[in-house]
């Protein structure tokens, strides 16, 4: 009996977790009587980095807001390994970092904030924060208040705050679009570095096709409203990706393919 149990538990441990992580089924959402999403289905595999790209007004942000539970949907279900969002650790990075960080808290306390919702001891929390800071490896005085920092530094704090809980799913809503180019390159690089090997399923909304492709394992192209999936294009260039990645034949081909589909959808 005991041997049998052992065998069973051994067998369970050997089975890898299912590849499907996030499952969206029958999602519907309308604004002012106009359907934006009708019976929309989407499955994201575990640990993949998916960039969402599509025409203006197709509801890219709306989609990740509904999946992350920020915005209620009219109908449908979103499950993470079969569990609702309330039972899932998620991280969310807003485009407008100024109105996302808490200006009354020092940067370090902003980063610590979400840990208070996890059942961790004080020592465990501090260890988490330390580990995260070490993995980002940036020189930054985190005892300052957000308003004493540059925009890029504030967004960096915002990204750290999203990652400190060790999220199962990370949502990024145009996180770099309000930043200058230098800072964008730097943050993309840091984010890639930190996500490396963590297996976080990530969903990035971007309005910059280069960025969408550069960051992605897969580009999710959307149609005009009512929105459906136009195509899913894989991009499996090795990581860490650098500026050199953007001149490889593979990158150019994937980008061209995405652009063609995008333009076809815009014209439709």
């Amino acid at each position: 009996m005991r041997a049998a149990m052992k065998q069973v538990s051994g067998a369970v441990a050997a089975v890898p977790p299912p590849a499907d992580h996030v499952v969206v089924k029958g999602l519907s959402k309308g604004f002012a009587g106009q359907p934006l999403y009708a019976d929309f289905d989407l499955t994201l595999s575990r640990g993949s980095f998916v960039s969402v790209f599509g025409p203006n007004g197709c509801g890219k942000s709306t989609l990740i807001n509904m999946i992350s539970g920020i915005l209620p949907m009219d109908r449908g279900s979103v499950l993470f390994d079969g569990r609702p969002v309330s039972e899932t650790r998620i991280g969310y990075v807003f485009q407008n970092y100024r109105e996302a960080v808490f200006p009354w808290l020092r940067a370090i306390d902003n980063i610590r904030y979400p840990l208070k919702f996890l059942p961790l001891s004080k020592a465990e929390r501090e260890a988490r924060v330390e580990a995260l800071l070490a993995s980002f490896d940036v020189k930054l005085d985190l005892n300052r208040y957000p308003y004493e920092m540059s925009g890029g530094q504030q967004q960096l704090v915002s990204i750290m705050r999203a990652l400190v809980v060790d999220p199962e799913v990370l949502f990024l809503d145009e996180p770099f679009s309000a930043l200058d180019y230098e800072m964008t390159l730097f943050l993309r690089d840091r984010l890639q570095h930190v996500l490396e090997g963590r297996g976080v399923t990530s969903l990035l909304v971007s309005h910059d096709l280069d960025e969408a492709v550069f960051m992605a394992d897969e580009v999710l192209l959307l149609t005009k409203r009512p929105t459906t999936v136009a195509a899913r294009i894989a991009f499996d260039a090795p990581r860490p990706r650098t500026a050199d990645t953007t001149v490889t034949a593979d990158f150019v081909r994937v980008k061209a393919e995405c652009l063609e589909i995008f333009q076809r959808e815009v014209r439709r």
């Binding site: 539970g69 969310y92 109105e99 996302a100 904030y113 979400p114 919702f117 996890l118």
Partner: peptide
């Protein structure tokens, strides 16, 4: 109060 900050707290589990 800024809605986005409230959303940010909510999405973190508040």
């Amino acid at each position: 109060a800024r809605k986005q900050r409230q959303l940010a707290a909510r999405v973190m589990g508040a």
